[in-house]
Design a protein around this nucleic acid. Structure first.
Lengths: 197, 197
DNA sequence: TTTTATCGCTAACACACGTTAGTATGTTAT
DNA sequence: ATAACATACTAACGTGTGTTAGCGATAAAA
């Protein structure tokens, strides 16, 4: 009888969630079927339900675990007594590294949250809205301090966050520059676009 | 008997394609059903097939009409005898305005092309790859001329293009700045991140 | 007006989906 | 060894999907 093998010390549920992330990224949430997932896990579709409640639950788990990591990070950064530019750079580096090293989850959380259902959907959208406002507030502050040139802060946030999601293309490409080079290039361009001179 | 009303001088097929763009953006290609589309058009699902071949054909039309517009533009820009920075700015402004004024189509082309099927899929991916290489070549040239700071050109392209797709958030937001302000802010940040100083 | 082509309808198809019930197998604790 | 539990299986369900066939209604051409 087939059995979900749990290397490391992952629960079987965690194995399923991880495989789901890969699958949802490759095909999209709607196009990825539970039978696909079952095959990836090495088990029959019905067996998955010994470990999870529903397909949507998988999406919840992915979306909120990612969202929580970003919220914790901005909590931390806001408290630091550094310049606005340094705070932004720190956040950007965190985003970049999340996108590099937890690609599947972050990508899914970014692109597939639309398919959450409604207590969770509104919740997620709220968290996202609040996160962006806090990010924008840091930028506004930098503008007041003349560290950052006079721009529309929400627009700057939207540029930063979406630019980083472009790391998707880096993952897809065959001739990749190293993660470190990628990080430095992105910081150079993005921070370079903000600073007052 | 219900009839697809064609204002202006659109064919009925064009009406369907347009409504499909809206629907595909809202729900995603897979989640949007032909019955949804039929309702939006004001007709029964089966009736759509008097005008279109398949659901996928709708996606083809959207993706390739968008791709062609961008290819034509870069053809035009490459021929101009201007600086690299000016060329890039021109391309960026075109991207921005496409994203503002043809939101639904451009968004769908950007996010849903994965669901194309295979003669078309490879074709689309190719066009995209080539477009980005040509964009990168302009940047490389600017670096050689010292107009642009020394960065990895493909990374710069990926940042620019994805940043612009963030206009999605602008459309979603309630308190929008004007399209003109949006354009100027984006250009300021993106071009500002490239130039040598 | 008559003819012809266009367009929309109802009905139905085959299929893929998420999920449940019930049962068998394997693992762990007594 | 035996009891208790965790996990996987087969079979099947109801539902929603894209799409086709065939017929009636409407508009355009004669």
């Amino acid at each position: 009888m087939a059995r979900i093998k749990t290397d490391n010390n992952l629960t079987r549920k965690e194995v399923i969630v991880t495989k789901a992330a890969t699958l949802f990224r490759e095909k999209g949430f709607k196009a990825a079927s539970m039978r696909d997932l079952a095959e990836a896990v090495g088990v029959e579709a019905a067996s998955l339900y010994n470990h999870i409640k529903s397909k949507t639950e998988l999406l919840h788990e992915l979306c909120f675990s990612v969202a929580n990591r970003f919220l914790h990070k901005i909590d931390e950064v806001e408290l630091e007594k550094t310049s606005s530019i340094e705070k932004i750079e720190k956040l950007l580096r965190f985003h970049i590294n999340e996108m590099i090293h937890h690609y599947e989850e972050v990508y899914v959380s970014d692109r597939e949250w639309k398919h959450l259902s409604d207590p969770y959907l509104s919740n997620f959208q709220n968290q996202r809205r609040i996160y962006r406002k806090r990010f924008a507030a840091i930028i506004e502050n930098g503008i007041k301090q003349k560290e950052i040139k006079s721009i529309d802060a929400p627009t700057a946030v939207l540029i930063m966050l979406h630019a980083i999601s472009g790391i998707e293309s880096w993952h897809r490409s065959v001739q990749k520059i190293s993660p470190e080079e990628l990080e430095e290039n992105m910081i150079s361009i993005l921070v370079g676009g903000l600073v007052n001179r």
